[in-house]
Amino acid sequence: MIITIISMALVVGGLVFFLGASTGLIRFPDFYTRMHAAGKGDTLSSLLVLLGFAVYQLKDFQSFSENWLVLLVIVKLLGISAFILLTSPTSTHALMDAGWEDEVEPEIQKGRENHLNDDYPKF
């Protein structure tokens, strides 16, 4: 019972972050902020949903000798989580980097243009 509640909370939390990520993807003004929303929201929400699944697997767990296959599923889910944790932010970074190299202009608040020139190379 308590395991079901925990896993449901994790999955619902993940879905909330998914909603935030997709809202940000639609509503934010330029390429960089959109990637920011999509990258962060996607990573965290996928992790939460997968962890929720992993916790739910514990429901049928009685003893190690009988239910070791359940542990195998959990290990696989954790492996997928680790892979997403590693690759999703990197791919977001690579995409932003490609945008910067391709000289996509960021949309900047009036009067704050200067801070871009602080330590970045100019176009």
Partner: peptide
């Protein structure tokens, strides 16, 4: 060859 600059400097 591609540009030698990156977003994090």
């Amino acid at each position: 060859p591609p540009l030698d600059s990156s977003i994090n400097g």
